[in-house]
Design a binder for these strands. Structure first.
Lengths: 126, 126
DNA sequence: TGTCAACCTAGACGAATGCCGAAGCAAGCG
DNA sequence: CGCTTGCTTCGGCATTCGTCTAGGTTGACA
């Protein structure tokens, strides 16, 4: 019975992760770096960066794979593979509705990454 | 005399790149994605993410390699290779002063990446 | 000048990545 | 029921990546 109710077995990053003292303000510990690096790695490919943008900027916050795939000169399986990478990095989540699969951006995670890179957080508490 | 004053031949990203309508607000064009992806890829490794943080959060905004290397269980050349990757991604710049080499974070670039990931920019201009 | 220390470059090698075609599920439709 | 369409998974290559050891190159100092 390896079939269990494990809805999203991947998803390393949680929505509630309080992981975000700006990178330039406080040294990132090794374990945090290990947890966050996959997210940056997932964004470190032009195709995935575009996919991420297309999903995040889509109309209802979600995009159908059938709209994403024809935007590239790549095979369906390859796009699927990139989407899987984004999913496993915790950057998007997928949902099947009828025939089509929709991807939604996890904006909380994006915000965490943005906060980590931001130079000016609130540099000094008065 | 192939020795020329070529201080930083790599450095893809410029300080003045106006590359940053938030990813979730407007679809990232292919050429922009191609230009930015290497920066994210460079951050997509735990060691480099820590290096980046150590450099960016260092005292005078710069860190000596001699301080960075012993912080990891890795050989000197490996650290040097990671620093080179960060340098070629335009995230840091290096300078030799006497015996030691100092790395400085290019905070402008970091801010650009942060702005790209930020969900809330100023969503609608009134 | 010789020597030492700090750092980079060169070359090698196993592991991971990006890509594809083929095959497998899932939904819908005849 | 079977066929078609949408998407994923599987198995395979060629390429890139992370790491190492060995060998420079640069600067300081006796």
């Amino acid at each position: 019975m390896p079939k269990q109710a494990t809805p999203l077995p991947h998803t390393v990053l949680g929505d509630d992760t309080t992981c975000c003292p700006p990178l330039a303000q406080q040294r990132v510990p090794a374990d945090v770096a290990t947890a966050l690096a996959p997210a940056f790695k997932a964004l470190g490919d032009p195709v995935r960066l575009q996919l991420m943008s297309m999903i995040a900027s889509a109309e209802n916050g979600e995009a159908c794979v059938c709209d994403l795939t024809p935007a590239f000169d790549l095979s369906g399986p390859t796009i699927s593979h990139h989407l899987r990478t984004l999913r496993e990095a915790g950057l998007v989540e997928a949902e099947r509705r009828g025939t089509w699969v929709y991807y939604r951006a996890r904006k909380t995670v994006l915000s965490q990454l943005a906060a980590l890179l931001a130079s000016e957080g609130r540099t000094t508490a008065p």
